[in-house]
Write a protein that binds this DNA or RNA. Structure first.
Length: 437
RNA sequence: GUGAGUGUAGCUCAGCCGGUUAGAGCGCCUGACUGUGGAUCAGGAGGUCGAGGGUUCGAAUCCCUUCACUCACCCCA
């Protein structure tokens, strides 16, 4: 009977991670993990499902209406697959808000789901490295978060010619829209959305969209001038005394003291799509002409924990997607050549040596090496070929000749060099060879 | 959800003005070189040419539909 076979393709917008892919993913995540831990951040995780209301409240209309995977469970609860981690971490923090020493420094690498049309740098399932600090109200926390972001980019092999962090402040933009543009809340939202798209629009198209929101020509001019301000320009601007501008000034001062300012630019056109940001917001841009896009973003949210608790607790953090980071690494040729996952192959001469091979492999493993032992007797040709294909640098063999003299032979696959040593010196010989690689 | 492009072996592709059993390179498997991989040589497996329908004596090749992938829009990581 011939049955129709199922497709081997992964579900739309998802990826299979074959061992070679998984090695790279692990390398990238471990780099991020190590960096975050070096700043004292601790790893956490949460469930992939949350109640639907958690996102309905704060995450932004578009995300909830168009991009959320959600369904009713068998008990009739309306649940959603997490599209972002910030609500979950806020919930977790709120649940223990009185018992965790502050500041709270946490990070996580969750997989997140959004229902959208896949394209470059944008899939339905992706992993996102998330770092957050809770419990520090000043911009000094924003500084630490930005420093971590920069350090991760450096640890992944990038430098300041590869990327730049664009920094703005929601409060400043908000106050500007109130005072100078005299907009109400819905007007502000509309203008924000337009500013967010500015880079993709022609200048006159941008002005046309702004005028549709009801702004006069003069106000459009002053808004465009405002979004183009650099630090010196902001210092002369009428908004300089507002709290948002003061925060930005202070943040840039600290960045300079830490010599991080060369990675950063003031960019008052940065808005961020998520509704919950209240202060500093930032996005990292790839400077390479082939990959001009936001690599990741983040900011300060002073009211998110309030969803779950009467006690206010401020937070600031960012999220970094694995897809965009890999695109970044590919365009800048930063994908590392990873060391082989196995160091030693123990060949099997014939079936009389089965026990010896396993003993030998065990001894080498105890010395800290990763070892594959030949399972069943096959021609030596095939065994060496297998070791070659798997990129295993050292092959060990004990045949009748070696056994008679209590010796063992090893071969270095890259050079082809072989030698025979006393059994007791095997591990030392392997170690010496691997060190030289 | 909208628009554009692409779908031929595991991968990269050729064939596509319709015409006998559908090809190459790489990869994979088997064997030779007889305690050992890479080189060479000799074999082999693997494709209902994305799927369905139509035109035709005849379709991988022309037409329609559909699906998938890619890119852009929307939004965002």
């Amino acid at each position: 009977m011939k049955t129709k076979k199922l497709s081997t393709q992964p579900y739309k917008g998802t990826r299979d991670f074959y061992p070679e892919d998984m090695r790279l993913r692990n390398w990238i995540f471990n780099t991020m993990r190590t960096t975050a831990q070096s700043f004292g951040y601790e790893e956490y995780d949460g469930p992939m499902l949350e109640l639907f209301e958690m996102y309905a409240a704060k995450s932004g209309e578009e995300l909830v209406n168009e991009q959320l995977y959600h369904f009713q469970d068998r008990g009739g609860r309306h649940v959603a697959i997490r599209p972002e981690m910030t609500p979950t971490v806020s919930r977790m923090v709120a649940a223990r808000i009185n018992t965790i020493p502050r500041p709270i420094r946490w990070f996580s690498i969750p997989n997140l789901w959004r229902y959208e049309r896949p394209q470059k740098g944008r899939l339905r399932e992706h992993w996102q490295f998330n770092v957050d600090v809770f419990g520090v109200d000043s911009v000094l926390a924003d500084l630490e978060i930005i420093e971590i972001a920069i350090q991760i980019m450096l640890d992944l092999g990038g430098d300041f010619t590869d990327f730049r962090i664009h920094i703005s402040n929601r409060k400043l933009l908000n106050d500007f829209m109130t005072r100078a543009l005299e907009l109400d809340e819905s007007g502000k939202q509309a203008v924000c959305k337009t500013i967010d798209k500015k880079d993709k629009l022609q200048n006159d198209e941008f002005r046309r969209m702004l005028s549709q929101t009801g702004l006069t020509r003069d106000k459009i001019d002053s808004l465009i001038d405002f979004t183009r301000l650099d630090r010196a320009g902001l210092a002369r601007h009428e908004m300089i005394a507002t709290s948002g501008a003061v925060e930005l000034e202070s943040l840039f001062g600290k960045l300079k003291e830490s010599e991080l300012d060369r990675f950063c630019t003031l960019d008052l056109s940065i808005v961020r799509g998520l509704d919950y940001y209240t202060g500093t917001v930032f996005e990292m841009y790839d400077l390479h002409p082939d990959n001009r896009r936001a690599l990741f973003g983040g900011g300060r949210y002073d009211n998110l924990v309030a969803l779950f608790s009467n006690q206010p607790l401020s937070g600031v953090g960012f999220g970094m997607g694995d897809v965009t980071i890999q695109d970044f690494m590919i365009t800048h040729q930063l994908i590392p050549v990873l060391p082989p996952p196995v160091e030693v192959f123990v060949a099997l001469f014939d079936e009389t040596c089965l026990g010896e091979v396993r003993d030998c492999a065990r001894r080498i493993r105890r010395a800290g090496f990763r070892v594959i032992a030949q399972i069943e007797p096959v021609k030596l040709t095939k065994q060496y070929k297998f070791a070659h294909q798997k990129n295993i640098p050292v092959v060990v063999l004990q045949g009748p000749d070696e056994r008679a003299g209590n010796t063992i032979s090893l071969k270095q696959m890259i050079s082809g060099e072989q030698k025979t040593v006393p059994e007791s010196e095997l591990n030392a010989a392997i170690r010496a060879w691997l060190r030289r690689m």
